[in-house]
Design a protein around this nucleic acid. Structure first.
Lengths: 232, 232
DNA sequence: CGAACTGTTGAGAGGCTTCAAGCCTAGTGG
DNA sequence: CCACTAGGCTTGAAGCCTCTCAACAGTTCG
C-alpha cells in the first residue's frame, strides 16, 4: 500500500460522489485535508476481519472483494465494492471490530476518511447521515437476497444469477462483458460452492453458448436463457 | 389483526425502548398520538414482500419471523424479531417496496409508527437517526455472518450454530430452554435445509443427549459439545 | 371421532465435494 | 528467445450429504 496526495490530486473531486454532494464548502475543505489516498495492487489486503478501523474508505477506482473467513479458513464473498461505494463503515458506526475483510481484485484507489471526520459529518450533516443510512439499508436488502439464493438455489441457478448481478454492476458499456477479473475460486466463494463445481457449470454454459470467456472476462451471450436458468 | 389503543394502554411506555429513550417530551406525545397498536395471533401475517408500508413497526411483545420467499415459493427465514426490535424500516428508508415478509410466530403486539412520524424523527432527532443507523449496521453484520454459515457449513454444523444463536436471543432466564415455538419447517427455513434433514439431525442430537425437546421447546443440555459441532 | 397438520423414519436418487491428475498460461531466469 | 515453473484451470471418478418421495405416527382442534 502506498500513495501520496499529490500523485492523485487530479482525479479527485470528492464532491462529485453522491455521498458528499451535499457537503458545505467548508466541510469539503476539511474532507480534502483529512482524507488520505491509498493505492492497492491486485490481491493486496486493505484490512482484515477483526481490525479496529480508524475511519472508512471510499472507493475511487478499482474493484474490491469484501469477504468473511468461514469454515476451514475458506473465504466467503459478501459483495464487491466499486467506484463510489464505501467500505468499513459498519465498524465505525457500531464501534466494533470490523466483521469482514477487504482485498483489491484489481488495482484500486481508495480515500480513507478518518473517524473524527465521519463523526462530525454524521452529527452535523443530515443529508450525509441520511445517505449513509440509505446505503446500509440497500446493502442489507442485497445481502438478504443473496442469502436466500445461496440457501435455496442449486449451484447452477445460483451461478446464473450471480452472472446477471455482476453484469448489472460491472458492465458499464452494456456490452455484456463483465469488467471484473474474477478467478474461478473467487467466483466460487461468491456462489458458496466449490471451485470445481463452478468450473463445471461454466464449461456447460460455454458449451451451450450462453457465455464466452476471453482473457478471463466473461461475456454473456444469451441473457434470456441465463435468466431462465437463474429462475428469475 | 385487531387491537385498540385502550386495550393495551397499560403496558405501553414507548420511552422505555432504547430507540425512543432520547425523545423530547413533545416528541413522545406525538409518538403516542400517532402510533397505533396491533395484535397478531400465531401465524398471522403482518405484511408481505412487495408491500408499500406506511410506516415501520416496533415489537412490544411476541416473536416474529422475518423471511423472504424464494425458489418454488419456499420460505427463507432472515431473522426473528422480538420485543424492542423494529421491522419494516428498510422500506421506509429506501423508499422501496418491502423486500421481506413478516409473520407472527406467537401472539405478538406491535406498535405501528407512521411514515410522517418516522421522517420527522429522522430529520430532527440525531440520536434517533443515529440509533437507526446502528441497528441497520448490526443487522447487516448478523446477516453477513448467517450468509457465510449457510454457504459454507454442513447442515449439522449450521443447525448447532442456530441453536446457540437462538439461545442467546431467546433464553432470558438462562435456563437453556429456547423460548421460541418453532416448527421443524421454520427451523429448516432458518438453516436453509429441508425439513427432514433438520428432523434427522435433531433426533441425532437428542439421541446423543445434546438436547431435549419438551412441548415443542428445545432445551440445550450440552452446550460445549454443541459449540464443538457448530465449529465455534 | 375424524380431519388436518406436524413430526418421524426409510429408501433412493442426484447434486456437490473432494481427491487426483493433467492441461494451459503467464511470468521468470538462463 | 526459449525452456521452465508455479499457479490457475479443467476434467474424471468416487463417495458423501442432502433432497425428495412416501408411508406412517402423533397431535390438535373442531
Amino acid at each position: 500500500m502506498n500513495g501520496t496526495k499529490s500523485f492523485l490530486e487530479e482525479e479527485i473531486n470528492l464532491s462529485k460522489f453522491q455521498l458528499f454532494s451535499n457537503l458545505s464548502p467548508e466541510e469539503l475543505i476539511h474532507l480534502n485535508i483529512e482524507g488520505t489516498y491509498l493505492v492497492y495492487t491486485r490481491n493486496e489486503t486493505v484490512y482484515l476481519e477483526g481490525s479496529r478501523l480508524k475511519g472508512f474508505y471510499l472507493v475511487l477506482r478499482g474493484i474490491l472483494n469484501v469477504y468473511k473467513t468461514g469454515r476451514n479458513g475458506e473465504e466467503q464473498n459478501l459483495r464487491f465494492a466499486k467506484c463510489g461505494e464505501i467500505i468499513g463503515y459498519h465498524s465505525i458506526i457500531c464501534q466494533e471490530p470490523e466483521n469482514c475483510s477487504v482485498r483489491a481484485i484489481e488495482e484500486s484507489v481508495l480515500c480513507h476518511i478518518p473517524y473524527s471526520t465521519v463523526m462530525r459529518l454524521l452529527q452535523y450533516n443530515r443529508q450525509f447521515s441520511g445517505r449513509i443510512l440509505q446505503i446500509a439499508c440497500e446493502e442489507l436488502n442485497e445481502t438478504n437476497k443473496r442469502l436466500t439464493s445461496i440457501a435455496q438455489k442449486k449451484a447452477k441457478e445460483n451461478l446464473a444469477e450471480i452472472l446477471l448481478v455482476l453484469k448489472q454492476k460491472f458492465d458499464p458499456d452494456d456490452a455484456n462483458v463483465l469488467q471484473i477479473p474474477l478467478s474461478r475460486e473467487e467466483l466460487a466463494s461468491t456462489t458458496g460452492n466449490g471451485k470445481e463445481t463452478v468450473i463445471r457449470i461454466l464449461s456447460e454454459f460455454r458449451r451451450d453458448k450462453l457465455i464466452e470467456i476471453k482473457k478471463g472476462r466473461i461475456k454473456l451471450l444469451d441473457i434470456p436463457k441465463i435468466k431462465v436458468i437463474a429462475s428469475l
